[in-house]
Every structure is written in C-alpha cells, then in structure tokens.
C-alpha cells in the first residue's frame, strides 16, 4: 500500500473470522492507522485485495465497516441528539448473515454510555471524554459488522474504558469483528494480534518505477 508517494506496507496478509478481534501493534509510524484507513476504504490499495465473505455483494468491504479514528466527527453546533441522529440516518447499515446486532435507539445508547442527560444540549458543551463517548455511540445506531477502532480508549477514563470494552465484547459475541490499533492492552476475547514491523529496504518500490 502506498501513502502518497511513500510505500507503507508490502506483503501484508491476514484473515479474520467473525466474532474475533484483531489487535494491531507496532512501533510509532509503522502504519497502524494507515492499515485501518485502508480497510475503511479511505486509502486505496496499490496492489492486492480485500475480501469479505458473506457480505452484501453490492456493497464494498468499506461499507460494512465503522471507522472510529482520532477525530470525533462531532459538530459542536448541533445537539448531541442531532449529531447522533444524522449519522444514524446517513450511514447505510450493512446486514450480513452471521451477525446479529442489538437494536439500539439513539437515547438508549447515550444512556448506556452515561451521557443520556446531555442529549438535548449542543455538543459544544461536552467534555473531551463525553465527546469521545458520543462518537462511540455512532457505532451502535447503525449496525455494521466490522469495527475499525484507532486508539479507541484515548481520552476515556477507566470507568468508560471498561464500559466500552464490555460493549466491544458484546459486539464480538453477536458475530461482529473488530480491528483495533492500540498501545494499551485491551481485554477482548477471542483476540488475535498482528504486529507490524519495519519494512526492509528491499521491499520498497524500485527507484526505476518512480515517475
């Protein structure tokens, strides 16, 4: 995979079963975030392919995923409820055979995450942790089997972190998949891990191909 004119990965291959979580680890700058963005379809592959067995054939793999990155995609000018309702209506849900999502109403998930009392407030009044939880709530209102979580627990206190991990485990039990990049160990099960190592110089694109 190339990022602009910089090659980030080569020869990367893995597979993940439904109901499993994959933790991506590796040193800084090795391309963990780039891997998640590639799975989310935001960065195109220069070679290779992504496949999802049992997915809706008319949708791309990326359209089966929720991407949860460093940015919260929360508009301060809209109320908490309006923020969430927009992503619920706008994001096309993806239903696949062996994934059975729990139906959450917008208010239910806000309550579960402990920010139910803020639902009528403009999101500008939320603290960093609350904004983060509002961003997490988006994953529950529009069911998609694959979650791509980039440092999901940053800006969360111990309590909300445990809560989020419970919700993630619940997602796995229902047949979902999680790919997450993180520095802090997360107690997810069943868990696989993928360690990204530095790329040797022979794996880089030969100079002759660079135009």
């Amino acid at each position: 995979m190339d990022r602009g004119d910089r090659r980030v990965f080569a020869g990367l291959s893995f597979s993940l079963e439904s109901g499993n979580a994959l933790v991506v680890t590796g040193p800084n700058g090795v391309g963990k975030s780039s891997l998640l963005r590639t799975l989310a379809g935001l960065v195109s592959l220069s070679e290779g392919s992504l496949n999802l067995e049992g997915g809706q054939s008319e949708r791309s793999v990326a359209e089966h995923t929720h991407y949860f990155g460093h940015q919260s995609a929360v508009k301060p000018a809209l109320s908490v409820k309006e923020n969430l309702a927009f992503w619920r209506d706008f994001t096309a849900p993806a239903h696949v055979s062996n994934f059975d999502p729990k139906e959450y109403g917008a208010q239910d998930i806000l309550e579960d995450l402990g920010i139910g009392h803020t639902s009528e407030l403009p999101a500008a009044y939320l603290s960093a942790g609350q904004t983060r939880r509002l961003a997490v709530a988006r994953l529950f209102v529009s069911p998609r089997p694959i979650w791509l979580l980039d440092e999901p627990t940053s800006a969360l206190d111990a309590n909300s972190e445990a809560q989020l991990i419970d919700l993630m485990n619940d997602h796995l039990r229902r047949g979902g998949m999680i790919v997450t990049a993180t520095h802090t160990p997360l107690s997810l099960s069943p868990l696989q891990s993928l360690r990204l190592e530095a790329l040797s110089i022979e794996d880089l694109a030969p100079l002759e191909e660079i135009g």
Partner: peptide, 9 residues
C-alpha cells in the same frame, strides 16, 4: 522505522 510486514499470531 516505517512501513510494515506482518506476523499474525
């Protein structure tokens, strides 16, 4: 170090 090769365990 940048770039990656992977091991799945």
């Amino acid at each position: 170090p940048a770039g990656g090769s992977a091991t799945l365990q």
